[in-house]
Each structure stands twice: as C-alpha cells, then as structure tokens.
Simulated scan of single mutants.
Amino acid sequence: MEARIDAIFNNEYLQFIRQHNGAEIRNGYYDISEQISSYVRYFIEIEDIANDISLMADDEISQYFFPFAIGSGGTYFLMKKKGDACIYYYDSDYMGHDAISKIAQSFNTFMNNIKSDTEIRIEGTHKVVQVTTGKP
C-alpha cells in the first residue's frame, strides 16, 4: 500500500496495522479543539486506504495526506504520506488546507487521547473538568 499511494508509514502506525488492520471503536471521541469533538468511528483497513483517498475528493489534500480513520459526519483522521508523524483532522465541510488541523504529534499520542463517551465534560465559564463515570 505504501508504494500504491506513494507513502512511508511511520513505525507506530505499522505496529497498529500489524496487530489490528482496521478496527471499529465504540463510543470513542476525540477533542479536536475546545469547541469541536469528533467520534472516531473506525480505522480503515490497509487495503481500503487508496479507495478512501479517492472518496475524499480533495486533490490538494490527497496529494500529501492519507486517511487512516473515519470520524463522524464524513470527517477523516489523516497522516502525511511522507515527513512528520503528526495526526491531522480533516473536516469535509471545507477543502484544501482549510479543511485540516494538526491534532496530535504522533499516532500513539492520538490513540492515547481517544476518549470514551463515559467521560463527561462539564463546561463552566473558566474551566473544563473531566469526570469519569462507570466502573474502572
């Protein structure tokens, strides 16, 4: 797949693919910013990445990035094909570089920041407090 999409996968992602090659996440969401969250619905199987690049229909982004996970509402989580190991969020309401935001420095950081919807965000005027419910 790396040759097919002209990419070099980073080691953290390769380890994940070797173990899971796609996975569905139940009730996992990711805080994109203080105002925006997106559910991480599933990780794309390696053999489907090229197809998902074409489904994005954004030539500017697909030239440099590939999707590895699907978010809610037609959003994607991306990695650069070559270069840094950062994770990016793609908002399909926009096109080109206006559609992406850097959200994590690495794949493992991204994975560690996926939250369960049992974590309730209580928003006040000055702070956000995380409260975890349910059994540990």
Rank of each mutant, 00 (worst) to 15 (best):
H20A: 00
N21L: 04
G22Y: 00
E24F: 07
I25M: 05
I25S: 02
R26K: 12
R26H: 04
N27C: 07
N27D: 14
N27K: 12
N27Y: 05
Y29M: 07
D31G: 04
I32R: 03
E34C: 03
E34T: 12
I36M: 08
I36G: 00
I36T: 14
S37G: 05
S37E: 11
S37Q: 14
S38W: 02
S38E: 03
R41I: 11
R41E: 13
E45Q: 14
I46W: 06
I46T: 04
D48Y: 05
N51K: 12
N51C: 05
I53Q: 13
I53N: 06
I53Y: 00
S54A: 13
S54L: 13
M56N: 01
M56E: 00
M56G: 08
A57F: 01
D58S: 01
D58T: 11
E60P: 00
E60A: 06
E60K: 06
I61D: 10
I61L: 13
I61C: 06
S62I: 13
S62A: 11
Q63W: 05
Y64E: 08
F65A: 02
P67A: 02
P67M: 01
F68G: 03
F68V: 02
F68W: 04
A69C: 10
G71V: 01
G71I: 01
S72F: 05
G73D: 13
G74N: 04
G74I: 07
T75H: 04
Y76M: 08
M79R: 13
M79L: 10
M79T: 08
K82A: 06
K82C: 02
K82V: 05
D84P: 01
D84V: 07
D84G: 15
I87C: 12
Y88S: 05
Y88W: 15
Y88C: 03
Y90Q: 08
D91G: 00
D91C: 01
S92V: 02
S92H: 15
Y94W: 11
G96F: 12
D98S: 12
S101T: 14
K102Y: 02
K102L: 11
K102H: 06
A104G: 08
S106F: 00
F107T: 04
F107R: 08
F107H: 02
T109W: 01
T109R: 07
M111L: 15
N113E: 15
I114M: 15
S116F: 03
R121E: 11
E123A: 11
E123D: 12
E123G: 09
G124M: 06
G124Q: 10
T125D: 14
H126Q: 14
H126W: 06
K127V: 11
V129D: 08
V129L: 13
Q130W: 05
Q130H: 15
V131D: 08
T132M: 09
T132Y: 13
